[in-house]
């Protein structure tokens, strides 16, 4: 089941930041992790991920660095900033409250 676009707009950044909490990751890796860890529910089109990462970067919640391998190929790695970590804590609480409220309404766990 894929999440509708409007819902994904709110969930996507939190999901990506959550994945970055455990360490720095590059774009394709994030796409695969999202797909695998959410059993496809939060699978994100690649065309969505990169603008999302750039937005998080513009807000100062993630930062990036480019690593060039010996063969000359480069990759861009993303990681959470301190500001991003605080934001993730806030957003996580909001999602938990939302989930609890939805549960009470019978929307979740029904």
């Amino acid at each position: 089941m894929r999440i509708e676009r409007e819902l994904m707009r709110g969930a996507g950044p939190v999901a990506v930041m959550r994945l970055l909490q455990s360490g720095e990751r590059y774009g394709y890796e994030l796409i695969e992790l999202l797909d695998r860890q959410s059993a496809g529910v939060l699978a994100m089109g690649q065309s969505t991920l990169y603008p999302l990462l750039y937005n998080l970067e513009a807000k100062g919640w993630v930062t990036s660095r480019i690593e060039t391998a010996d063969n000359g190929r480069s990759r861009k790695y993303y990681r959470l900033t301190d500001k991003g970590k605080k934001r993730l804590v806030q957003d996580s609480k909001q999602w938990q409250s939302l989930a609890a409220a939805m549960g009470k309404l019978g929307v979740m766990g029904a």
């Binding site: 990169y50 480069s74 990759r75 861009k76």
Partner: peptide, 11 residues
């Protein structure tokens, strides 16, 4: 952006 997309497809 180019370098990132190149890396994406290579990966």
């Amino acid at each position: 952006v180019t370098d990132e997309l190149i890396a994406h497809f290579r990966d």
